[in-house]
Amino acid sequence: MTTVRIPSPLRRYTNSQSKVQASGATVQELINNLEAEYPGVKSRLCDDSGQIKRYVNVFVNGNEIRTLQGPETPVAATDEISIVPAMAGGR
């Protein structure tokens, strides 16, 4: 199982957990499995065509997947996934 870091705005889907475990050989598979476990998560990460939204970044071991193989980026059980959406708060 791969560790996935969940950002604050998505924790309402994960029973407030900041870290969850998920399986999947690629980022795409992993997101689908996350959705099965925590319904609602996928629609916050992906658009209708299944592409990662352009204001969300997914990192595998600290590297953004657009610089790797996108949703097809392979994932190992020892990897750590970080989901980082745009946040605007500052004042």
Binding site: P9, Y55, N57, P85, A86, M87, A88, G89, R91
Partner: peptide
């Protein structure tokens, strides 16, 4: 480069809405 498009209004809470 990091965030090519903004989220639709209301999708990401502000500090006023979400707290900090």
């Amino acid at each position: 480069c990091l965030y090519p498009d903004p989220p639709p209004p209301g999708e990401v809470p502000s500090c006023a809405e979400g707290g900090v």
